[in-house]
């Protein structure tokens, strides 16, 4: 594989992209999980699917946008969907989670209509659904790199504000933090990262990369910064391990990455239980 990495550009693209996503998806994932918004990632990934399907449809039927990366249209839809979720959450103040199924089903509905209009697509769409090692182009890599620089810069500059907003929204507002604009910036970042991650993990599994590593680290980490650190560590292990395995065993990378993440999660839960039992026995 090492020689493959030296030789083939597509492998380099896939691994570099994977390494970047392994950092930014769990990074935002920590904030998503503690704010109990885990399902938002799912809703946004499905609306991204609609964007990609539209882009592929226009390319196939009307020959417009040909050569334009479907990722861009996916991002437009994802960001648009995130803003719509925010709008719905203010409309349904007491049923904020309603926004998620609305956007999720809307995304799938639109996506399916575009797909049927195009009389089905080739394997291209399949690679968007489940992720692919070979599909990542150099252009994808650059786009994802720019998104990650943007996300990491914003999170490190607004860290304490994002922390306070996640921990105690009411207190944040009482101390005069611009909660609304902060939330807006956050959700746009999530939308961008989802669109970026889906090349490797696939739309159907993208949310797992934001939640599974966090679910594992939250079991034992002490404090917020430690949770972020372990989430990123687990994210990296899952992505790189998954890419390795899928390359050698010829598996879909998305599935392999997710299964490694789940394996880590189960392992952590088991270890935690065992250490708790030992602590009781010691007493």
């Amino acid at each position: 594989m090492i020689s493959g990495l030296m030789q083939y550009e597509f492998l380099q693209n896939a691994f570099l992209t994977g390494m970047i996503i392994g950092v930014i998806a769990p990074l935002l994932g920590v904030f998503i999980v503690v704010r109990r918004l885990s399902l938002i990632a799912d809703a946004l990934s499905h609306i991204t699917l609609a964007g990609i399907a539209l882009s592929l449809l226009l390319e196939k039927k009307f020959l417009v946008l040909s050569g334009l990366n479907p990722l861009y249209m996916g991002m437009v839809f994802s960001v648009g969907g995130s803003l719509f979720i925010e709008k719905l959450r203010t409309v349904y103040k007491h049923y904020q989670e309603l926004a998620i199924p609305i956007i999720l089903s809307g995304g799938v509905g639109l996506g399916v209509i575009f797909i049927s209009l195009a009389d089905g697509f080739n394997t291209d769409l399949f690679s968007y659904l489940f992720g692919s090692v070979s599909a990542v182009s150099r252009a994808d890599l650059w786009t994802i790199l720019i998104i990650s620089i943007f996300v990491i810069t914003i999170v490190s500059f607004l860290y304490k504000e994002l922390f306070l907003l996640s921990f105690d929204e009411e207190y944040a507002k009482a101390t005069g933090i611009a909660a609304k604009s902060l939330h807006f910036i956050f959700i746009v970042m999530v939308a961008l990262v989802i669109a970026a991650s889906m090349r490797i993990v696939g739309i159907l599994l993208v949310s797992s990369l934001m939640t599974l590593p966090v679910a594992a680290s939250i079991r034992f980490a002490n404090g917020f910064k430690q949770t972020i650190f372990f989430s990123i560590l687990f994210g990296e292990i899952s992505v790189l391990g998954g890419l390795f395995l899928s390359y050698y065993l010829n598996l879909a990378p998305g599935g392999t990455i997710v299964m490694i993440a789940i394996f880590i999660l189960v392992l952590v839960i088991w270890l935690k239980k065992r250490s708790a039992k030992r602590a009781i026995l010691k007493r």
Binding site: E161, F163, F167, D168, E170, A172, G176
Partner: peptide, 29 residues
Amino acid sequence: FVSQKANSFNTGFPATVFEVVASGLTKKL
């Protein structure tokens, strides 16, 4: 300000005492 709601925050939130108290400086900084 210490709100009544402080009692009903998300108790599973992974933050240390230090991190929670540090967040009190957010606006001032």
